[in-house]
Structures are given as structure tokens and as C-alpha cells.
């Protein structure tokens, strides 16, 4: 191999790394909490900002709180309160089946899915 081959390989590796970094960073910017009800997105919020969200729909009521980088359902008027029991998360999702409410933490995570 001559000098030009090494330069060419170097350029390829550099461009690949840049490309990889670009696509890895694209659309990131910290973790976000996406809340949806049925097929409708209710809102998207940064996980790093504390806030309380009262979500009232025809199906019912859920109180979602984002606090200290974690999100949880504080209260709900569904029958089994399974969403409240699911506790705090900083990755993955909380689902309230009776209200079709999904609280999903998206963005930079260490994994792609949670088996449960």
C-alpha cells in the first residue's frame, strides 16, 4: 500500500465517524417525556424540567409528574391504578390501559426496549 491508500483509508474512517456522530446526535438533546392518549400526542416535555400535568380526557383523569429526571403517574381515576403502581421511571414507558394513556421516556438511553 502506498501513502495515498493510507490517506484514502483515513478519509473514509474520518467521514464514517463524522457521519455516525451526526446521526447519533440528530434529534437528541437530552431525554424527553412523550405523553400520548390513544393515537394523539398530548405533549412532549424535557425530562430535566420539573412539572405537573393534569390530563383529562373522555376516558378519565391522570396526574403526571416530572420530577428530578424521573416521571410518574401521581394519581388517576382508573379502576386498577396500575399506572400509579408502576412508580417512577427514567427510561421505558408507563401505560394506563383503561385511559389509553402512554408516558414514554425517549432519547439517549442505554437500551432499545424493556422486557417485562
Amino acid at each position: 500500500m502506498n501513502k495515498r491508500d493510507f490517506i484514502a483509508i483515513g478519509v473514509v474512517v474520518l467521514l464514517s465517524v463524522l457521519g455516525f456522530v451526526f446521526f447519533a446526535l440528530k434529534g437528541s438533546g437530552g431525554q424527553t417525556v412523550k405523553i400520548s392518549v390513544g393515537a394523539r400526542v398530548y405533549g412532549t416535555y424535557p425530562l430535566s424540567e420539573n412539572r405537573e400535568l393534569k390530563i383529562k380526557t373522555d376516558a378519565g383523569y391522570n396526574l403526571v409528574e416530572i420530577k428530578n429526571g424521573r416521571v410518574f403517574v401521581k394519581d388517576a381515576d382508573c379502576k386498577d391504578k396500575s399506572c400509579v403502581k408502576q412508580g417512577e421511571i427514567s427510561g421505558g414507558s408507563i401505560v394506563c390501559l383503561p385511559h389509553k394513556l402512554v408516558v414514554e421516556v425517549t432519547g439517549e438511553g442505554d437500551f432499545d426496549a424493556v422486557a417485562r
Partner: peptide, 26 residues
């Protein structure tokens, strides 16, 4: 929470699947 993957991730690496801790959600 029942997870299945086809192939690897788009970038060629393996998929990472976490197993939930029954004692502590999240």
C-alpha cells in the same frame, strides 16, 4: 414488554434489551 428483534440495529450493532427489576420500576 414482550420483545423480539430482527437482525441488528440500523448502525450494525446489537439491540440492547433491558430486563425490568420487579422490585423497582424504572
Amino acid at each position: 414488554g414482550n420483545v423480539a428483534v430482527l437482525g441488528g440495529k440500523p448502525d450494525g450493532s446489537d439491540w440492547a434489551v433491558a430486563v425490568e427489576n420487579p422490585d423497582k420500576k424504572g
